[in-house]
């Protein structure tokens, strides 16, 4: 289908449209607002006090180091969104070619790649990420890499499955007999059929990546200060007094995480319904 057909169909799903709009607005907000208002997420405003309640000068109040929470939440959003969107791309970067190879060439490639997938999937990703992150020190880049690497088997298996079903259709055999090269077949016949599920999957996995990042930050293996991410901001809620008496510290970030993940879910569902409701994921 071409792009205008796509949008027409996409628009019919209300939740998907809401999801996409929310994400776009959010991205706009976290990148534009801090620059526009010259917010500083690291400066401590001792005059305003520690854990100060929201006020005119600090719309979301201050945290335990007297830093402006609105700035931190927005900058944190930059990091969380970046990790959330980029990590699945890493998974795709690894998983797509491997899945294609496994499904198209079968044989040795299939065995090795599927075996490697099993190995990766047989271990809790949180724990493996922690081990990896204790070797390479955490930063947005390494987090994207680690979370992305944890997920490649999912993409690979998805692609593999789709390639297998496309293969079964006759025109592939026809193309081979005509004498087209592997690369041509892969890029013209197989890849298009595989791309849709991959896009949908990226949307779903973005939500998961954000959740993973917050989990890792809670365990202390995630984003390091003074940088903020929604996950690291929320980990302050481990302190009972912060949890109960100064909810403005963690509630906005918490809410944003939930809304963002939900939006990715809706977006993914919408994409799937638009492209192919019967898509196997």
């Amino acid at each position: 289908m071409n792009s205008s057909e796509f949008w027409k169909k996409f628009r019919t799903s209300k939740s998907a449209v809401i999801g996409l709009s929310f994400l776009l607005l959010e991205a706009l907000a976290v990148y534009l607002l801090p620059a526009l208002f010259r917010m500083d997420p690291v400066a401590s405003d001792v005059q305003a006090g520690f854990f100060a309640a929201p006020s005119a000068s600090h719309l979301l109040g201050t945290d335990g180091a007297a830093r402006d929470l609105l700035a931190r939440t927005l900058y944190g959003g930059q990091v969380s969104l970046l990790v959330g969107v980029a990590a699945p791309f890493i998974s795709v970067l690894l998983g797509l070619p491997l899945g294609l190879a496994a499904g198209y060439y079968r044989g040795m490639a299939e065995t090795v790649i599927m075996r490697a997938s099993d190995v990766f999937m047989s271990f809790p990703s949180v724990l493996l990420s922690m081990i990896l992150l204790s070797i390479i020190s955490p930063s947005p880049g390494t987090l994207i890499a680690v979370i992305g690497i944890m997920d490649w088997p999912v993409i690979a298996k998805l692609v593999y499955g789709n390639v297998l079903s496309i293969r079964e259709k006759e025109y592939i055999d026809g193309a081979v007999s005509i004498g087209r090269t592997d690369f041509e077949i892969l890029s013209h016949e197989i890849l298009p059929g595989v791309l849709s599920p991959v896009f949908v999957s990226i949307s779903f996995r973005s939500g998961g990546a954000i959740l993973q990042e917050s989990g890792l930050s809670f365990l202390g293996a995630g984003i390091r200060p003074p940088q903020a991410s929604w996950g690291s901001i929320i980990s302050a809620a481990q302190d009972l007094s912060v949890l109960t008496r100064t909810p403005w510290v963690w509630a906005p970030s918490g809410l944003l995480i939930v809304l963002t993940i939900m939006s990715f879910q809706f977006l993914g569902q919408g994409l799937r319904d638009t492209l192919d409701p019967k898509m196997k994921l």
């Binding site: 959740l211 989990g215 809670f218 929320i234 963690w250």
Partner: peptide, 15 residues
Amino acid sequence: ALAGMTAPRFIICIT
């Protein structure tokens, strides 16, 4: 179902 899938676990625990 959505709530279960999206809420960060440790926040649920603590609350």
